[in-house]
Amino acid sequence: MAVQVRIPTILRSYTGGEKAVSGSGGTLAELIDDLDGRYDGIKARLVTDDGSLHRFVNVYVNDEDVRFLGSLSAPLADGDDVTILPAVAGG
């Protein structure tokens, strides 16, 4: 099951500069594990130690915010388009 993942500038150090990579997984959590196997360390930038999606990382599946799709349990299907964007936020 292949999905395309768009990587933000800040995380391209993990992907050798690639703006988009392909990955696989039936859920977002599985996809992130798959990516971490090839791009060591990327998972820690997306998922907290207690296993939830980082509050200030936005992930979209086919342009929908995964927070409304089950977060890390969001289901993925072949051909889905996943976009990662760091939140722009502050105080």
Binding site: N58, D65, L85, G90
Partner: peptide
């Protein structure tokens, strides 16, 4: 956040603008 002490771009609007 609509807050006097915090801001965050709306995630969907941010995606469209990016």
């Amino acid at each position: 956040e609509r807050s006097p002490t915090f801001y965050r771009f709306d995630p969907i609007e941010q995606l469209h603008v990016w």
